[in-house]
Design a protein around this nucleic acid. Structure first.
Length: 336
DNA sequence: CATAAGGAATACC
DNA sequence: GGTATTCCTTATG
């Protein structure tokens, strides 16, 4: 991300980020660990409540996987936050264009002029490209885990259901798959936000927003990576994926690895205890099993069966129990 | 009661 | 034929 091409495209492709407050990709981790009253996953920037404003600026404190915002950026944003008489943040529907200015507007910040302004603008651009990069990576990961294409227009009914289930699981939305039954991706994309809301009062708008993000991301991906540069970008967004990236049959151990690579999304259900040694813990066995079942189209999957598959790896030397055996803790024999 | 280990049959590519 | 799934028994804490 952040290539000149992308910037150019970014100024023309609308990315309806909603307000950052509502942006689940950035706040989901926060929400998750708050709910479960556990420690925040690593990489999550937590701020004291009083420094987190009600408006969309909050979204900047996002748990970008392993990436942290620079101190400078945070300081800058806090400084802007503290500035009095700022115009209230416009809802993002009113500023859906994601470019350096768009982000500033979306954050309720005005981009000042002069040298200082240029510095701040560059800062914001950095933040923006970090956020965008994370969004794209999250979507890539989800696609790999679900074995679907990132372009919603190409989804069949099964893909749509998978995406719905996944999104529901990930963001703990009520299950609404039924009301979207027998809809293809094309159908879904032709629906308005109102259509979504009519089908689900509770979370239609959220699902619509999610879909919009996916569509925009697919659009950006298309524009940013024309032709043969696509391969390079794919490697960049999923460096460890290599052969496993080519979808279709995925092994359980690869799936687990992919979940572990995204601590801000899946850290609440599976996480490293010791990444160097390849030791990981399944924090929520039922949840991981559900995700695995989703990926393999095995609705009856449960931890009993999943763990049986893991145990098959003992003989093959792929996964083993760590020296000091603990419940739900396993170890990759060959850590990355 | 949830997890662990592993045998055995079966399904799927 | 390799891998995963399903079902099962037994053990452990």
């Amino acid at each position: 991300m952040g290539s000149p091409g992308c910037d150019r495209v970014g100024s023309t492709v609308p990315l309806p980020l909603m307000s950052f407050n509502d942006y689940p990709y950035s706040v989901s981790g926060l929400r998750a660990w708050e709910e479960e009253d556990t420690k925040p996953p690593r990489g999550l920037i937590s701020v004291p409540k009083h420094t987190a404003p009600e408006r969309s600026l909050q979204g900047v404190f996002l748990p970008c996987s392993d990436m942290l915002l620079t101190e400078d950026s945070l300081w800058l944003l806090k400084k802007k936050e503290a500035a009095p008489l700022e115009p209230p943040c416009k809802p993002l529907e009113q500023c859906p264009v994601i470019d350096s200015q768009g982000l500033g507007v979306g954050l309720g910040l005005e981009v000042p002029s002069g040298l200082e302004g240029q510095v701040e603008e560059r800062c914001l651009e950095q933040v923006q490209s970090i956020v965008l990069g994370e969004v794209m990576k999250d979507i890539e990961t989800a696609c790999k885990l679900l074995n679907i294409t990132s372009e919603p227009m190409e989804w069949n009914c099964g893909n749509v259901q998978k995406w719905l289930l996944w999104t529901e699981h990930l963001y703990r939305l009520p299950q609404v798959g039924k009301v979207f039954q027998e809809l293809s991706g094309k159908d879904l994309c032709s629906m308005t936000e109102e259509d979504f809301r009519q089908r689900s009062m509770q979370c239609g708008d959220l699902l619509f927003a999610h879909l919009d993000i996916w569509r925009s991301a697919a659009c950006m991906k298309e524009c940013c990576t024309p032709g043969d540069t696509k391969l390079h970008s794919a490697e960049e967004t999923c460096p460890e994926a290599d052969s496993s990236c080519s979808s279709q049959p995925i092994h359980l151990w690869q799936f687990l690895r992919q979940l572990l690579l995204k601590p801000h999304n899946y850290g609440r259900c599976i996480r490293w205890l010791n990444k160097e040694k390849g030791i990981f813990k399944i924090e929520n066995s039922a949840y991981v099993a559900r995700l695995w079942g989703l990926r393999k189209n095995r609705p009856a999957m449960n931890y009993d069966k999943l763990s049986r598959s893991i145990r098959q790896y003992y003989k093959k030397g792929i996964i083993r129990k760590p020296d000091v055996s603990q419940r739900l803790v396993y170890q990759f024999v060959h850590p990355v």
